[in-house]
Design a protein around this nucleic acid. Structure first.
Lengths: 202, 202
DNA sequence: GTCTATATCCAGATAGAC
DNA sequence: GTCTATCTGGATATAGAC
């Protein structure tokens, strides 16, 4: 009985994961409005009615995905900040690991894409907008703090740190979008070219 | 008679412009699927039935807007290439004029946003996808040629020119997206910070 | 040219059998 | 838990009056 219950719980999680996985792919590449519940169900391999056994609505799935996306990104940012590394190296690691995600981990690439496109959209559920507004700037602040630390020790250029953090994330977001439509030919730009915006050369 | 006809033509163009203007705003910020014909008509200030007097479908409006967006961007790129300026200066001018557009010209900002989000979307009309596929790389090639010329004369770093062009446009696209949701607080990053990716410091 | 009314279709969500 | 059938609402596009 206890065993069966646990098994059911597992199955339930399994199903939810399938739905999340299909929904992430479709929402990121086609958008919320163009993705039908039937598309998600079909991609996951079962009937569309079943989706409603696990989620109460399409918006509900979307909101939870947004929540997960920011949780992932922001916990990665938090980790990064506490690494014991020279400040410029942190920027390097951040770039390299995100680029590795874009190239080798489909879900990571889709998560970046979802964040980039959903943040810019005015047609998402209110609750999703709330989450974005609350969490959007955390990675900017982390990068900004790293930059300011690097400026103190002279390893990073003495430009406006807000500007530099904005350039950092704009470039990452732009690359995520490019990668979405051109994964077949996408080649990660050399990290040194990217880092040139931040490295202090004097 | 001839005069009336011309007047009608002008009125017709006027109406079409209103529709284009409203549709650009809505498609760029909310996406094709989430934008209703009724929204466009309401924004333009007339009934929804009238839209069909000027366009045959919602997709039709979208396709024409995509066409116009790329025409603008690509003719600007073409112009840039033929300016009589040092190569690095061309990159500077390109950045500055696009940033000026983002800050001061709503339509320019919306056009950049439309390109950034539509290019990444898999749920656009086939004809729009065709246009994008045909025209997308032209600005990349222009920037790449400018970079290679700058590398020849030593003003631009000797990194892979394809990488650099990709970084150029990714950053611009990322900034366009950021600006869309944060125009109130958007401050253009100093051009020198951006140019650091390209400038040859030896 | 412009509006109102409506036919038609499609997608989200629910009901209920198994 | 899973499926099929269906209710319902909303959006595109058309018809037709003015």
């Amino acid at each position: 009985m206890g065993r069966n219950k646990e098994l059911n719980e597992l199955m339930k999680d399994e199903r939810k994961q399938q739905i999340f996985s299909s929904a992430l792919k479709l929402f990121a590449t086609r958008g919320l409005a163009s993705t039908k519940i039937a598309d998600i169900a079909q991609d996951a391999g079962f009937s569309q009615g079943l989706v409603y056994h696990y989620f109460k609505s399409k918006d509900d799935i979307f909101i939870q995905l947004i929540k997960m996306a920011f949780t992932q990104l922001n916990s990665a940012a938090k980790q990064l900040e506490h690494f014991d590394l020279p400040h410029l190296q942190k920027l390097k690691i951040a770039y390299e690991s995100m680029m590795d995600g874009l190239v080798h981990h489909e879900d990571a690439a889709l998560t970046h894409l979802l964040i980039a496109t959903s943040s810019a959209s005015e047609s998402i559920p209110d609750e999703a907008r709330l989450i974005i507004d609350e969490q959007y700037f955390f990675p900017y602040e982390v990068i900004r703090r790293i930059i300011e630390a690097g400026q103190t020790d002279g390893s990073i250029v003495s430009k406006n740190s807000r500007d530099l953090a904005l350039l950092f994330w704009s470039t990452i977001r732009g690359l995520s979008i490019y990668r979405a439509t051109h994964h077949d030919t996408f080649v990660v730009p050399e990290v040194e070219s990217f880092l040139a915006m931040f490295r202090n050369k004097e």
